[in-house]
Design a protein around this nucleic acid. Structure first.
Lengths: 158, 158
DNA sequence: GGTATAGTTGCAACATGTTGCAAAAGGAGA
DNA sequence: TCTCCTTTTGCAACATGTTGCAACTATACC
């Protein structure tokens, strides 16, 4: 279906997945949104709102914090991105990532702060269990695990 | 003044689980902390920081927001409470609950806001899988699921 | 291309959470 | 009970996220 990177080279602006999705759903496209979506598309890893703002301003210097937050809310509402806390390792902020095809869970080291993503069939199993047991329609799920990676494991065994 | 859950009736101050845990670990006990811990002990359901502050002020009117946040951080660090976002249904705030014996996951309805807790053996399975696959020592895990409960399920089937 | 209009933006103000620092209070020992 | 030392508190300032509102702009229609 929709490709993440468009192969076409005849257009100055390659629309990108997120922009395409929003337009297809009748969402109005503005300069500011284009700049923000571009950032989300090009990102690898997890971005916080301040970083998104900073990068988006390369394209559109007058853009405001508020617009970033509102665009992120829009994308969340359409299920196109996921919002993470990453267990608040870095303070109060949140992080955002384009929703992947394969849902994954986030494992964060409490000491070094590294975040690893892994997919697990148990993820879907939990969702299924909730749907059955609670007669609940699951829209999305978030699994975040905190602990210590191999390098950072505390020496104290007790 | 200080009994909230009167276990026995001959003592004015029943220490409560959280306070006992902290004292046992050599943490200094202050008037402010006592007031906050009392609130956490007596709470059913999930409290946000503002509510904790408001209730704690009944006992100790001069207590500050900052002290509430710092005490919550202390309790988190000792693994005595868990911090939840509940998917930010109610805005930016966080929610806190005493860490239960049986870990559970939180299922929140995106329309009516009701939060249901359920325990699942899959919860522990996921933790085990992470420990094995990533050589990771899991300290805690958080599973939050958003969707629609039976009553709030959207009519639109598409 | 021009116009109407509904959705979007930026600003200001607010709400929630964090940090630095001087003053105050808890707890140990005498 | 008094003193000393360390931890904790409250304040102020800052960082992050949300909301109300007037001005602006993307799109539909002509």
């Amino acid at each position: 279906m929709l490709q993440k990177e468009s192969g076409g080279s005849n257009k100055a602006v390659s629309r990108g997945y997120l922009q395409g999705q929003l337009v297809a759903r009748g969402v109005r496209m503005t300069q500011q949104r284009r700049a923000i979506l571009q950032v989300m598309e090009g990102a690898r890893g997890h971005l916080d709102a301040a970083s998104i703002l900073r990068i988006a301003r390369h394209d559109h210097p007058d853009i405001d914090r508020v617009t970033v937050y509102r665009t992120l809310t829009l994308l969340k509402r359409h299920g196109l991105i996921d919002e993470l806390d990453l267990l608040h390792l870095g303070g109060v902020g949140h992080y955002y990532e384009q929703r992947p095809l394969q849902q994954h869970l986030h494992v964060a080291c409490l000491r070094c702060g590294r975040v690893v993503e892994i997919a697990s069939p148990l993820f879907d199993k939990i969702k299924g269990q909730v749907e059955r047991n609670l007669a609940f329609r699951v829209a999305f799920a978030r699994v975040e695990i905190g602990g210590y990676c191999e390098k950072c494991r505390p020496e104290t065994s007790g």
